[in-house]
Simulated assay, not measured.
Amino acid sequence: MATLSKLKELMSLPGAVAAGEFSDDGKLLAYYGDISEKAAEIAALMCAANKATGNMQVKGWSAYTGKDGFWPVQGFAVAAGKYAACIMGNVGVFVELDKADFDKTFETLSKYI
């Protein structure tokens, strides 16, 4: 489980607005940032759903192409509008697109998988 110090480390990343941890079924386990608990709960559901969808897609891709190495999904980013959700394992950080350093973000997130 991500500790508050880990979430605070994620919040120190360029452009970070919120960080959190979620269970595979989408339950919010912890969060830190300037968002409401309800928003964090919805974000946890969104992240778990995207991770599950990604795993379904890569399993299908591997079966179709015969190429291994895509499953399981380790991390992903979803970007829209002004923000991106960057996820590794079950920990993520929401960042402002115009301020984010994605290499640094995923390097930091990779510590938590």
Rank of each mutant, 00 (worst) to 15 (best):
T53Q: 06
A30T: 14
G20Y: 07
L13E: 08
C47T: 11
F76Q: 03
I42C: 01
C47R: 02
F76T: 00
M88E: 07
M46K: 14
I42P: 03
W71L: 07
A44R: 06
A49L: 06
K27V: 12
D24F: 08
E21A: 14
D34N: 13
D25G: 06
E37A: 10
A52L: 04
A80V: 09
Y83W: 13
G69Y: 14
C86Q: 05
T65E: 00
A49P: 00
A40G: 08
G54I: 02
K82P: 00
E37I: 08
A52S: 14
K27Y: 14
M46D: 08
G20N: 06
A49G: 07
A43W: 03
A84S: 14
A16H: 03
C86R: 01
K67S: 11
G89R: 03
A44I: 03
Y32Q: 08
A79M: 08
W71A: 15
F70P: 01
A40C: 12
L29N: 13
K38P: 04
K59N: 09
F22M: 09
G26V: 03
L29A: 10
A30L: 09
M56K: 13
F22N: 00
V58P: 04
S62I: 05
M56Q: 15
A16G: 04
G26Q: 07
W61M: 12
G81V: 11
K82A: 09
N90M: 09
P14W: 11
K59S: 10
A48Y: 05
K38L: 10
A77D: 04
A19K: 02
G81F: 15
I35N: 09
Y64K: 10
A44M: 08
L10A: 05
L29D: 08
G20C: 04
G81I: 10
F76D: 02
G54K: 01
A44K: 04
Q57H: 05
A48C: 02
I35W: 12
M46R: 14
A80Q: 12
D68H: 08
G75H: 05
M11N: 08
D68F: 11
A79Q: 15
G33D: 06
G75Q: 03
F22A: 03
P14R: 15
E21K: 06
P72T: 10
Y64L: 10
A30K: 15
L10G: 03
G60I: 02
Q74D: 11
Q57D: 10
Q74A: 05
G89F: 07
M46N: 12
A63V: 00
D24W: 04
L10T: 01
G26P: 11
I42Q: 14
E37G: 04
G81A: 12
A84Y: 09
F70Q: 01
D25N: 11
A85C: 11
S36Y: 11
G54R: 01
G69V: 10
N50E: 10
L29I: 15
A52E: 00
G60C: 04
A16E: 00
A39F: 02
